[in-house]
Design a protein around this nucleic acid. Structure first.
Lengths: 339, 339
DNA sequence: CCAGTTTTTGGGAGCGCTCTCAAAGTCATT
DNA sequence: AATGACTTTGAGAGCGCTCCCAAAAACTGG
């Protein structure tokens, strides 16, 4: 059915070994022979059998993207698609395949971990959105599977990761609000069992401490990175009369906008809103959302490239990459009015 | 480093063959032996090497999800995440792995096709959102790779696919508008080089012909399933004074809503809007969008299950599955006002 | 033109598994 | 106790590739 090395060898009038050398671009093959072999390969459409190859090389050319269960909701916003785009881009460039593991339940998690890690069919993994204390990272280390995290882990010792600059991003957003004259600034945080949630809250606190000095605990409400969560959080914030709100994600900002609209309040006249992510929808919502742009696709590409580099060139000192972010000023922060 | 069958055999005091039989749940092993072997496997955490296995079985346990390049934009809306969720769910249940192929450029397409199909590392494929005349389907057939399409192909002969009922969905949406008394009903279609785009337009035409009889070509504008495309299409529609608009996707409906808002028109008072998909955001936009709900996750699950069934039980007559859709009435169609 | 050196080539082993087939073991029946 | 039928077990081959090593071929310089 499918061609083998041996058959190509026969067709080209050389040995199996020579064909193998040609395919793997190894030296010590006469130019003329090399060309002849390539011609046969091209004409027959031969592709080496990857199972056979990886049986001997102990490498599969497959990397996994693992998305633990807790983030079902996250998966409903365009963050993951963009991340995946970035990752697949890098995979395509470097001839790796991407396997996707979306874990819906705890049982699946239990079942998948051993299978994936010990069956040796992944060369490495990218882990997105794990929570603090997630045992996944420990398992990966125990099984010696190279991996890169998207998002800072709780304890980064010996671990490579790629993340946006969450602290600075939040700091910039809140500083902007302070500069516009708002004082009672609330925040809808991300889940505080994630480092993203923690870091963006930290940026909020930093800005407030530095430029204003007063923290009102009533103005800090925990959200969950969903639209409904943002909506609920805004409702809890409203009684405390915030002049402005920093939402730790655009999706939550959309929920907040809806809550404000339903309460008959105008944005930014009654309450200013700033988000984080700069999703495509941020530009087209009403009013257009001022937000912190993070390079999601590039995060994915970088994570994949760090991993692939480790796979191709052996272990390196762990790399901690923080990508810079940028405040995109639209109208939801009330920039026109206040200036 | 990693354990092999032979080592497990030695530990359990049996032969390689017996361990293999136990692992693959084959008959003709004494109960007592079977248990002893399982205990050793559990204690050692042994997992069979998949490369070695698939070298002899000619199966990898991997299915691919292929997303051709044209749909970059689509990937920015939650359709694909939901589809992927459905697919991974089925994969997890049936012990298959999912490999993701997102093709960004034509070159990647050229490069990937042979590699993926001939290297035999996919048992089968799910193809999403291919255009009419896409050579991918032809390649799949030529390479005898079992596959299932998400969305009806142009010529369904011999091809299995899963799709929502696009024609009926559009028909229902437009009939609803007609029943509410609107007469000048426009539509923003999907790309007309896709069957989805064609079918939803067909439903629009069917409803109009049946209940109204008059088709105004000026009220039919082609969109591209993006927010910006919906916005642009609405701008082209406005001069022809539609009373209502059926957008072939929610994302385009959002663009249309924005165009109307910017034009100072009220929805639904000046123009009613109906979408298609029922994305999460449809419930929370302003005004909440009346739309056709399609079971995206279930589409993914079904597609994966049809494929896996073919892989596990051999070829079957091609299956054509059309999932029913449901009109979700919110306020953007002006239901309260007209009743 | 030959010994010595370097480049090119081919054959064999083996990666870890499944599968076939024959040998060994078990059981019932005469 | 011996025969036949069936169940259980193990040894061997082979899947298609890479890698090692030895053989062959092609170059050197004297």
């Amino acid at each position: 059915m499918s061609l083998t090395l041996e058959q190509i060898a026969k067709l080209a009038g050389v040995s199996r070994s020579t064909v193998s050398r040609v395919i793997n671009d190894q030296p010590n093959v006469r130019q003329e022979v090399r060309e002849r072999v390539w011609r046969v390969i091209r004409e027959t459409g031969y592709q080496p059998n990857l199972a056979a190859r990886s049986l001997v090389t102990r490498r599969t050319g497959v990397i996994g993207l693992v998305i633990p269960r807790a983030v079902q909701s996250l998966f409903a916003d365009p963050f993951f698609p963009q991340l995946i785009q970035g990752i697949t881009q890098a995979c395509n460039t470097h001839d790796y395949m991407l396997a996707l593991f979306v874990l819906h339940t705890k049982e699946e998690e239990q079942k998948l971990y051993p299978r994936v890690m010990r069956a040796r069919l992944l060369d490495g993994a990218i882990v997105a959105a794990s929570e603090i204390g997630d045992p996944l990272v420990r398992h990966l280390i125990e099984n010696r599977l190279p991996f890169v995290l998207v998002g800072r882990p709780d304890d980064p010792t010996g671990i490579s990761f790629v993340q946006p600059d969450n602290v600075i991003g939040a700091y910039t957003a809140v500083s902007h609000l302070l500069r516009l004259g708002y004082r009672r600034i609330g925040t809808i945080t991300g889940p505080l069992n994630t480092t993203v949630g923690l870091d963006r809250r930290q940026g909020y606190l930093d800005a407030l401490r530095e430029r204003h000095g007063v923290i009102d605990e009533n103005l800090i409400v925990e959200g969950d990175f969903t639209e409904a969560g943002g909506h609920a959080a805004m409702l809890r914030l409203l009684p405390h009369r915030p002049e402005a709100v920093f939402a730790a994600s655009d999706i939550m900002a959309f929920g907040a906008l809806r809550a404000l609209r339903e309460a008959g309040l105008s944005v930014p006249d009654d309450v200013a809103v700033v988000g984080f992510d700069d999703l495509p929808a941020a530009a087209s919502c009403d009013p257009p959302l001022t937000t912190v742009r993070q390079p999601i696709r590039r995060t994915g590409t970088q994570a994949a490239e760090v991993l692939i580099d480790i796979l191709n060139n052996g272990p390196t000192p762990p790399r901690h990459i923080t990508l810079s972010v940028e405040l995109v000023i639209r109208s939801s922060c009330g920039v026109e009015r206040k200036r």
